[in-house]
Amino acid sequence: MSTLTAPTTKTPPEPAKPAKPRARNHRGVSPALRAENNVIRSIGVFVLWAVVVISIAMLAWMVLQAFRDTRAILSDPWGMPATFDFSNFVRAWTVSDFATATFNSVVTTGISSFLTVAIAAPAAYYLSRVESRLTGGLSLYFILGLGIPAQVILIPLFIMLNEVNLTDSLIGLNLVYIAMSMPFTVFLLTAFFRSLPLEMEEAAALDGASALRTFVQITLPLAKGGILTAFVLQVVAHWNETLLALTLIQSTEKYTLPVALISFVQQQTYSGADWGGLFAGLCIVVLPMLIIYVWLGRRLTEGLTLGMGK
């Protein structure tokens, strides 16, 4: 319940800084906005903080368990690691081949995300700047893909790639990821380019820059933020993609992380549970996302929510 007192302890600084009371008010909690403090609300606030605490505790717990050996985890799931023993990570990294999988995932995610944005950005630019019946139709055509679930294209894709020997190949997987990400990235970037002011482009054109040069030298630098957002969103999506990787990749040395994790889980059925190694594997999947989130969190939430709100 101590959390409930937080607002009152936080308010004292406010009168201490009379210089700009306006700015503070505009941050959200003006008197008119504040709900009356009834019981239901208090419960709600309490529950929310409980959710926050449990989420963080779960994450911390998962990381900590990765430092304990399986027998200790099983005998006492609430225990803390006695020492920071990296043997789970070492074993997962070497014996279970998470090293190769991590490498594959990093390479695939990096390349496919970069190419996705590199290919989608010009298309989105064109669709946002030229208004004709053709571009309207094209935009609609790209948006259509947002609604097609991956399992629909799964089988034909497998057959097609098999014809050209691109199954069980990271190149094939990259190509598929790029194609699959087109609808969302084009959609997001089109909306973003539309939000950029036209004046600078017009000025550049008046100065005699070609359309291509205007795009490269004026629009792209202006759009850095949006492009970075699109890139990071693709990194998250490709890092976590499972169904297509599971279908298209068969040999162990080409597994991406999610596929390696699945195969690790399924091996346990035969070789006995190795929860220590499994937790280490989970950490390898989750922690890069955590780092990206801490680093670029605002972009991610904005990219995933702002585009939707409009």
Binding site: P122, Y125, G145, V152, I153, P156, A179, M180, M182
Partner: peptide
Amino acid sequence: PFVGPAFIFYTVLFIVPA
């Protein structure tokens, strides 16, 4: 040059399979 690559990728590896 601008829309072509995106269009081709998307058509060949997404719409055609669909």
